[in-house]
Each structure stands twice: as C-alpha cells, then as structure tokens.
Amino acid sequence: MYYEEKVSGGKLVCFSVETAGGAVKKVRITGDFFLHPEDTIVRIEEALAGLAVDAGEDEAERRIMRAVGNSELIGATPGDFARIFKRAVS
C-alpha cells in the first residue's frame, strides 16, 4: 500500500505500508524532507507498526509525535505524516 503527497512548502512525503491480519506490519517513509537527527525516521516507522489498519489518524499522529520527540522535522509536520500514512492504508 502506497501513498505520496507534496505537502505545503513543496516537500514530497511517501508512505509505503505492509499490513497483515488487519494491522500494520511494516512502514517505509521516503521523501525529500529533513529530520534531525535522521535516524529518528526508523523510530517513526517502528512506532506505526502494530497499529490497527482502521485506527484513526489522531492515533497515528500521537504515535508519530511521540517518536519524533525532541527531533526536528523540517519541511513536513507529524500531521502531514499521519494524513499520508492514513491515506496509504485506506
């Protein structure tokens, strides 16, 4: 499952999601945004694994925000990530 969007400001965010048994199994986020430190991306991907496919966008955003923590996401927001993730699994 895949969805991509050019978010406000022009950066591209792409979500590739594998699901199994109604739950998210694996997430891969790609794009030309910035995230400091960069390794945080793995934390975000892992935070979304296990989420029910029909879970709300709010829950996805909460998980993303927790994973981002003090890291700085530039060119996109956790809300953008949650929306694009949700579109990918829908």
Binding site: C14, I29, T30, G31, D32, F33, L35, E38, I41
Partner: peptide, 9 residues
C-alpha cells in the same frame, strides 16, 4: 539522493 529518498524511485 537525500538520506530519506529511494534510490530506485
């Protein structure tokens, strides 16, 4: 390519 980009894509 940027750190988060897919090379193949």
């Amino acid at each position: 390519v940027g750190y988060f980009q897919s090379m193949e894509k």
